[in-house]
Amino acid sequence: MLFLQLTHRGAFASLQADGRMFETKFRAVGRGLRGASALAVAVGLVACASITVDSPPEAKQKVVAERAQARWELLIKGDVDGAYQYLSVGSKAATPPGLYKAKIKPGMWRGAKVDKVDCEAEVCKVQMLITYDFRAPRGGVMKGIETPVPETWIIENGTVGYVYR
């Protein structure tokens, strides 16, 4: 266990270094996309603006399901930075982006679908069904394993954020 934690920390350090490198590359490549990205953010805000604690359950469930699905699509693509944007305000405050990147390891996930969403007041419980592949360190490859993954989302500031602990 300890060595795993140390490995985590080592990965964290190297990720931070890599992150700076990649950030530069993204800036150079990303200028052409900036307009499209800004538009997407604006649309997102409009779509979520109507979601409040008092919204109908169906509306909450729909938005939460969409955002939960979208977050996982990003993770499956390996876009941890993108997935980080879906975190709740409190989660972002407790977990800076670098630490989040060190804790999340993309690569094994192959598919995601929303199984169910239940909302009560500002809290929504989501059950995702995640499909993943795994290569055993000293054995074979296990493909297409599907397992339930529970999530908590919170309605805040007109949108919903993923609660990461």
Binding site: M1, K103, P137
Partner: peptide, 19 residues
């Protein structure tokens, strides 16, 4: 025979391996 087991936290993508 040899073998191992890996504990996978699917939500975070992390795993811990035991031989």
């Amino acid at each position: 025979l040899f073998g191992g087991i890996t504990l996978i936290n699917v939500g975070s993508g992390t795993d811990y391996t035991e031989e």
